[in-house]
Amino acid sequence: TETYTFDSEDQAEEFAQRAQKKGYTVEKRKENGKFKVRVE
């Protein structure tokens, strides 16, 4: 499980979609103005 942090929602969304296409489970959340994407 890895967590990635992005400054913009667009970046987080793009990353999450790519990860989902590769078959990963993706969980997105906003925390302290940053966008976190957890991938497993």
Score class of each variant (00 low, 15 high):
37 V>A: 01
11 Q>G: 05
34 K>A: 07
10 D>E: 14
30 K>G: 06
29 R>D: 07
5 T>L: 08
21 K>N: 12
38 R>T: 14
20 Q>V: 13
5 T>F: 11
28 K>N: 05
16 A>L: 09
20 Q>D: 04
7 D>I: 06
31 E>F: 06
18 R>V: 09
34 K>T: 07
36 K>A: 10
1 T>S: 13
2 E>Q: 14
32 N>W: 04
20 Q>E: 11
24 Y>D: 03
3 T>F: 11
8 S>E: 08
4 Y>Q: 03
33 G>N: 07
39 V>W: 04
39 V>P: 01
18 R>A: 13
32 N>H: 08
22 K>Y: 14
2 E>F: 15
17 Q>K: 12
31 E>W: 06
4 Y>P: 01
33 G>Q: 04
33 G>M: 04
35 F>E: 00
31 E>T: 05
23 G>L: 02
6 F>Q: 00
5 T>G: 03
6 F>V: 01
24 Y>E: 03
7 D>P: 04
8 S>T: 14
39 V>Y: 03
7 D>E: 10
1 T>K: 08
33 G>Y: 03
13 E>R: 06
11 Q>W: 05
22 K>S: 11
3 T>Q: 06
9 E>N: 05
13 E>F: 06
14 E>K: 09
29 R>N: 09
21 K>I: 08
32 N>L: 06
28 K>W: 11
22 K>F: 13
8 S>P: 00
35 F>T: 03
18 R>Q: 12
21 K>Y: 08
17 Q>N: 10
17 Q>F: 09
40 E>Y: 15
13 E>S: 07
9 E>V: 05
1 T>A: 13
16 A>W: 04
34 K>N: 05
39 V>I: 13
25 T>D: 07
5 T>I: 12
8 S>V: 06
33 G>R: 03
22 K>T: 06
30 K>F: 15
15 F>N: 00
35 F>M: 03
28 K>L: 15
2 E>A: 14
18 R>P: 00
3 T>K: 03
12 A>M: 09
36 K>S: 10
3 T>R: 03
35 F>K: 00
33 G>A: 03
30 K>Q: 12
5 T>D: 06
29 R>F: 15
20 Q>S: 10
4 Y>M: 04
32 N>A: 08
23 G>W: 03
1 T>C: 14
8 S>K: 07
24 Y>M: 08
11 Q>D: 13
11 Q>F: 05
15 F>D: 00
6 F>P: 00
24 Y>S: 04
7 D>F: 06
12 A>G: 02
24 Y>K: 05
34 K>M: 10
37 V>W: 01
7 D>W: 06
9 E>S: 05
7 D>S: 07
6 F>E: 00
26 V>L: 03
7 D>M: 06
36 K>G: 04
10 D>Q: 12
26 V>G: 02
31 E>G: 03
37 V>G: 00
16 A>E: 03
24 Y>P: 01
18 R>I: 11
5 T>Q: 06
29 R>G: 09
28 K>T: 14
12 A>D: 00
28 K>F: 14
9 E>A: 08
6 F>R: 00
38 R>E: 07
36 K>F: 14
5 T>K: 03
16 A>N: 02
22 K>L: 15
12 A>N: 01
10 D>V: 10
17 Q>M: 12
19 A>K: 07
9 E>M: 06
38 R>F: 13
31 E>D: 07
17 Q>A: 12
32 N>Y: 05
12 A>K: 00
18 R>M: 13
19 A>N: 05
33 G>F: 03
21 K>W: 07
4 Y>C: 08
1 T>I: 13
6 F>I: 00
28 K>S: 09
38 R>D: 09
8 S>I: 06
22 K>A: 14
15 F>S: 01
10 D>N: 07
1 T>G: 14
29 R>W: 15
34 K>S: 06
29 R>P: 01
8 S>N: 12
27 E>Y: 13
22 K>D: 13
21 K>S: 12
28 K>E: 04
5 T>W: 15
5 T>V: 12
3 T>M: 08
15 F>W: 04
20 Q>F: 10
15 F>A: 02
16 A>D: 01
14 E>L: 10
24 Y>A: 06
28 K>Y: 13
29 R>S: 14
3 T>N: 05
14 E>I: 09
12 A>L: 02
14 E>Q: 10
13 E>A: 07
11 Q>T: 07
4 Y>I: 04
22 K>H: 13
2 E>S: 14
25 T>C: 14
1 T>D: 10
36 K>R: 09
37 V>L: 03
6 F>L: 01
4 Y>F: 12
20 Q>P: 01
40 E>T: 15
25 T>M: 11
33 G>K: 03
17 Q>I: 11
40 E>Q: 14
2 E>P: 07
9 E>F: 08
19 A>S: 05
16 A>H: 02
27 E>G: 05
38 R>A: 07
35 F>V: 05
15 F>R: 01
31 E>Q: 06
13 E>C: 12
7 D>Q: 05
27 E>M: 10
28 K>P: 03
7 D>L: 07
5 T>H: 06
3 T>A: 05
19 A>M: 15
5 T>Y: 13
27 E>F: 12
29 R>T: 14
12 A>F: 02
8 S>Q: 08
10 D>M: 10
23 G>V: 01
17 Q>V: 11
13 E>Y: 06
11 Q>A: 13
12 A>P: 00
25 T>H: 13
37 V>S: 00
19 A>W: 14
33 G>P: 00
19 A>Q: 11
19 A>R: 04
20 Q>W: 08
26 V>I: 08
20 Q>K: 12
33 G>E: 05
17 Q>D: 09
25 T>P: 04
30 K>T: 11
33 G>V: 02
32 N>E: 09
7 D>R: 04
31 E>Y: 05
19 A>E: 06
37 V>I: 08
32 N>F: 07
13 E>W: 07
4 Y>D: 00
32 N>Q: 08
13 E>V: 06
28 K>D: 01
37 V>Y: 02
23 G>Y: 03
8 S>A: 07
18 R>G: 06
24 Y>T: 03
32 N>G: 12
32 N>S: 06
11 Q>Y: 05
40 E>M: 15
23 G>K: 02
19 A>G: 02
15 F>I: 01
1 T>N: 10
2 E>H: 15
3 T>E: 14
33 G>S: 04
39 V>H: 02
9 E>R: 05
39 V>M: 04
2 E>R: 15
21 K>V: 07
25 T>G: 06
34 K>G: 04
9 E>H: 06
29 R>V: 15
9 E>P: 05
39 V>R: 02
32 N>C: 11
26 V>K: 02
38 R>L: 13
40 E>D: 11
38 R>H: 08
2 E>I: 15
11 Q>E: 15
18 R>K: 10
4 Y>K: 03
13 E>L: 07
16 A>F: 10
29 R>Q: 10
9 E>I: 06
28 K>I: 15
17 Q>L: 12
2 E>Y: 15
18 R>H: 09
9 E>Y: 09
30 K>H: 11
24 Y>H: 07
13 E>P: 00
22 K>M: 15
21 K>T: 08
38 R>M: 13
21 K>D: 13
3 T>V: 12
29 R>H: 12
4 Y>R: 05
12 A>T: 01
31 E>S: 05
21 K>P: 00
23 G>H: 03
26 V>W: 03
28 K>M: 15
32 N>R: 05
1 T>P: 12
18 R>S: 10
23 G>T: 01
2 E>L: 14
7 D>H: 06
17 Q>R: 13
6 F>D: 00
16 A>I: 11
36 K>P: 01
1 T>R: 10
28 K>H: 08
37 V>M: 02
12 A>Y: 02
4 Y>T: 02
40 E>N: 13
31 E>C: 09
34 K>H: 07
9 E>W: 11
7 D>Y: 06
24 Y>N: 04
16 A>T: 05
27 E>D: 09
27 E>W: 11
3 T>H: 06
11 Q>I: 08
8 S>G: 05
11 Q>H: 07
26 V>D: 02
26 V>A: 06
2 E>K: 15
12 A>C: 05
22 K>Q: 14
19 A>T: 05
32 N>D: 12
2 E>M: 15
34 K>P: 01
27 E>T: 14
14 E>W: 09
36 K>L: 15
14 E>R: 11
23 G>C: 05
28 K>C: 15
16 A>Q: 03
25 T>E: 08
15 F>H: 02
5 T>R: 03
13 E>Q: 07
4 Y>L: 04
30 K>A: 11
30 K>M: 13
32 N>M: 06
13 E>T: 08
35 F>Y: 12
